[in-house]
Write a protein that binds this DNA or RNA. Structure first.
Lengths: 201, 201
DNA sequence: CCGATTCCTTATCTTTTGTTAACGTTTTGA
DNA sequence: TCAAAACGTTAACAAAAGATAAGGAATCGG
């Protein structure tokens, strides 16, 4: 994918939160890089610091933890989603999880260092700050909803809801990742699927 | 509690994220109110818009949803915690949950309208924006950790961890609220407690 | 102060989930 | 192209959790 197209997608995403003049965009774009991540390659690995934040412009990634030697998938980012190991990025401490490309992906990245420099530019400071706030708020709401689903819904309810809201992305992902995402085992998800099939049949 | 003391606690909290000059603080404090919330009274009710955000200066509150006529407790805020139905506050849509005082509480509040006005003051705009970002990031990390615990840990592990990290606040809260918080029933938590007792005995 | 309510535990029974393993299918990668 | 690995389902059994009910202790509110 052409870098200009990728950068433009970043601008579109950014402007959904904070509008930019052409001059501001020009200044901001200097700090961005367009990276390609081959399938199965890592955006972050546990134990290393995630010093950048990115926008998935093409492809998809999954987030996973390793516990007792097992991979447990906790999240995904698809096209037009931000990605980062947020805690690691925000606190510059080692990440607890891996982020791995599920498909060949194109990512527009902003390194921690570049972000700081951008924030020191008079022209950009305020809008960067605002973008940071709005993004954090956006994902805060996502996480809030997710926690609420764990508290108030059974695994079966969570899966049914996911089927309604998940869109086509669901069909690009192995079931056992989805099971992890729901907080259950792949075997259990398979049983839930059969139960739902029988009801709707 | 004296209003000045309460306001001062807010200032201390704010300055943990963003330092303020006396002039800035004076301007900001004009927008704050100090409210008292008697035990069992509501900070927000489901269906109504939560148009303010606050800092618990004294006391404690619990967040809960009502599902099938049952109350399900999802969260708490204690002294020096922010409180709000964030999604409702940020999007000005009706809240999905209740927030109720567990004890007689003192809360320093900032209404949505006042926040907007404060953000329009040249003197405050940038620091308010930054505070908003840092708070959102702070809670984003909290939620991230919580989701991770649901994905990677069993209820028993979650409870054990909570015992380690929860502090004295745990002992001010009824067990069945904690059970909800962990995503299990009170009966199940009671069984887990017995299992843990036997092991450590 | 006392009756009512709330709270925690325990018991019983049912349902769901976890665990392990097997099997056929699909996908992968050399 | 072909063997190996990954995937989804199913089965059988064990472990844990949910539902319901009952009993006693603690707390609350008038």
């Amino acid at each position: 994918m052409d870098s200009l197209i990728a950068l433009n997608k970043f601008r579109q995403y950014f402007e959904k939160f904070v509008p930019l003049t052409d001059g501001e965009w020009h200044a901001l774009s200097q700090y961005l890089t367009v990276d390609h991540l081959k399938k199965k390659k890592f955006y972050v690995e546990a134990g290393k610091i995630c010093d950048q934040i990115g926008l998935v412009v093409k492809g998809a990634v999954r987030y996973y933890h390793v516990k007792d030697g097992e991979e447990i998938t906790g999240y995904f980012s698809f096209e037009n989603d931000m990605l980062s190991s947020y805690k690691s990025f925000l606190t510059l401490t080692p990440a607890a999880n891996y982020i791995q490309a599920l498909e060949d992906s194109v990512i527009v990245n902003l390194s921690h260092k570049n972000l700081q420099q951008a924030c020191q530019e008079e022209l950009l400071a305020f809008k960067m700050e605002r973008f940071g706030r709005l993004i954090a708020e956006h994902y805060l709401i996502c996480y809030d909803d997710r926690v609420t689903s764990f508290i108030t819904q059974s695994p079966e309810e969570r899966y049914s809801k996911l089927l309604e809201t998940g869109g086509e992305a669901l069909y690009r992902i192995p079931q056992h990742y989805i099971a992890n995402f729901l907080g259950i085992t792949p075997v259990s998800l398979s049983r839930i699927r059969r139960r739902i099939m029988k009801i709707s049949a």
